[in-house]
Amino acid sequence: MPGMTPLGIVYPCGGDTIDTDVFIDYASSVQNAISNTQALADQSSRPPAASVRTDLAGQTIAAGVTSIITYAAAFTMYDTMAMFTDTTPTLITIQSPGSYLVNVWSTRESFPTDLFSHRVAIRLNAVEQAFHKQDGGGGGIDNASQPFFVSALLSGLIIGDLITTTHLFTGVGTMEVRHAVSVTKVSSS
C-alpha cells in the first residue's frame, strides 16, 4: 500500500511491488508538487497588475463637471486575465479576488481660462474611496500649480469589481488632464 506526503507525493512502502508504474507515480506526484509551488512563485513575482494612462494629449474636461477618465492604453499588464480592455476604456475590472493598491498620478496639460481648484478621486463600483483636491489660497490656483498623487488600498475585492478615476476642476473653460493609474494585487485576502 503506497504512502503519501502532505503535498501528495506518492511513495512505495515495504512489501509493495516496485515496478515501472511506481516510478511514474512517484515522478508525477513530485512534478505536481513542484508545479503547485511554481504557481505560488508566479503569483508572488508577477501578481495581477495593470498600469493604464490617458492619451498623451490628455482628456478634455469641462469646468464644474466630474469627468470619468478614459484610458487610452495599458502600458503594463502583468495579468493574463486582462483587467483593462479597449472596449471598456474607463474601467479597470478585477479578475482575481484579493486586495489591491491603486495609485493615480495626475497632471494638467493645458490652461483653462480660469482655474480655482481641481480634484481627483479613485472610485470602486462608482463609490469614491480616496480623494484629493487642490484649492489655492485665495485668488485660485496658480496655473503653474503642481500635479498630484492619490493612493488607496482597496481591500477584499471580488471578480467583477470596477475601478475608475475621476477629475473635476472649478473655474472657467476647459482643460486637458492626464491620468496614469496603477492597480496591483497586494494580498490574496
Binding site: H132, K133, G137, G138, S151, T170
Partner: peptide, 18 residues
C-alpha cells in the same frame, strides 16, 4: 502630512496622504 488652503474652489475639499 498633506496641507492645502481654502481658495475659490468651493465649500468642499479633500486630502490624501501616503
Amino acid at each position: 502630512r498633506m496641507r492645502d488652503y481654502q481658495g475659490d474652489g468651493g465649500n468642499n475639499g479633500a486630502l490624501n496622504v501616503v
